[in-house]
Design a protein around this nucleic acid. Structure first.
Lengths: 196, 196
DNA sequence: AACGGAAGTTGACATAGATCAACGTTTTTT
DNA sequence: AAAAAACGTTGATCTATGTCAACTTCCGTT
């Protein structure tokens, strides 16, 4: 069953135990949705109305600048939470798009109709969420530091170590834009390292 | 009283009301500490044992690389929370230093002796914390995007708009390193803009 | 007030990575 | 299977920003 992976995910990341009533609430609150390749979870200009848990698949979040180049902000695979927090919280139009890169199974937690609050009130969920936020904050600080102070080559190497899945599942030009470099530069970096 | 500013801060950022017992707990859990200019809240290699709420003052968080140059990761002023989350959570030695840039009044929430858990169990505090985490996550995503895709000049302009206080209270070379550029480049950017 | 150190400026030069353009390869669509 | 689109590579050149070094200005300490 599709909900099992979410329930397992929550349980694994908290001390508290999920009660049967909690599980019932989760099944009720989260809505299943399947996206085909290249379908959008969120389009630029729309308000992000869900937190999405990825059961299976891969997605990417990006913006397009005035010149028409895409900048990849985040990549997502199984067991990641996809959302534009700013748009979700402030209910403002998003500047990002989030697109399924592979066929993707999602469980959507809507902001509307109190689902979000009721789920957050589950102790195990709240614990998991605090840990998730901490890890996000640690990861984005790391990524920021790297983007400001490390070379493109070092950032690529670190990515291959930390998230090897990304490299296998997304094409090079997307990896490049996630690293904040051009596809040409990434191609050269890869040729360089290959020679070593 | 020094605790009032913290209590006011929490109350302002939550729906729930702080009960007298909550306030008593906060006064008990948070420890007051004054740092003089250039004193450290955290030194590189130490484990970060507190979340620090800044009542008054200004601090900065930085690393020193192999070449001896300092990279400023974060600046803090009144009503900001200072901490190295990674070190705090994982209880690993920090790669950062956090230093008082002005004389600073802090309220420290220790990780030890259950203070942290008890305070987090206060509903108003938990709500405030969720909002704080969301805002941090939004801010660091914004900063990451800017560092990867905007020019130094644009990043400086945005900083002057978003956090004008930083520019007034920290010297230029620290602002430069917060922006991920050298002091020479920042100096040139400022001269450029002045001419316009 | 005068000294010493920290902060900021300016110029000459170096370099990582971007841009542009052409071409090769792989994948998708028909 | 052919055509089209997406993806990746390579070379030439350009540009924003870094590096190094000399100099000036400001500020805190005595």
């Amino acid at each position: 069953m599709i909900y099992d992976s979410l329930i397992h995910y929550i349980q694994e990341r908290s001390q508290s135990t999920l009660m049967p009533s909690d599980i019932a609430l989760i099944r009720e609150a989260f809505v299943y949705k399947k996206l085909r390749k290249r379908q959008f979870f969120l389009q630029e200009g729309d308000i992000c109305k869900h937190f999405g848990f990825i059961v299976k698949g891969a997605m990417r979040q990006y913006t397009v600048d005035q010149k028409g180049s895409e900048h990849t902000i985040q990549l997502y695979i199984e067991n990641w939470w996809a959302s534009d927090r700013e748009s979700f919280w402030k209910e403002t139009p998003s500047i990002y798009a989030i697109e399924a890169w592979e066929e993707t199974d999602l469980l959507l937690l809507p902001k509307a109709n109190g689902s979000y609050e009721r789920v957050n009130a589950i102790p195990a969920f709240n614990e998991m969420r605090i840990k998730l936020d901490d890890n996000n904050s640690i990861a984005s600080q790391r990524r920021l530091r790297a983007s400001m102070f490390d070379t493109a080559e070092k950032r690529y190497e670190e990515l291959t170590l930390r998230y090897p899945e990304f490299i296998q599942r997304f094409p090079q030009h997307i990896i490049a834009s996630y690293l904040g470099i051009t596809k040409e530069t990434l191609s050269r970096i890869r040729n360089q390292s290959a020679k070593k």
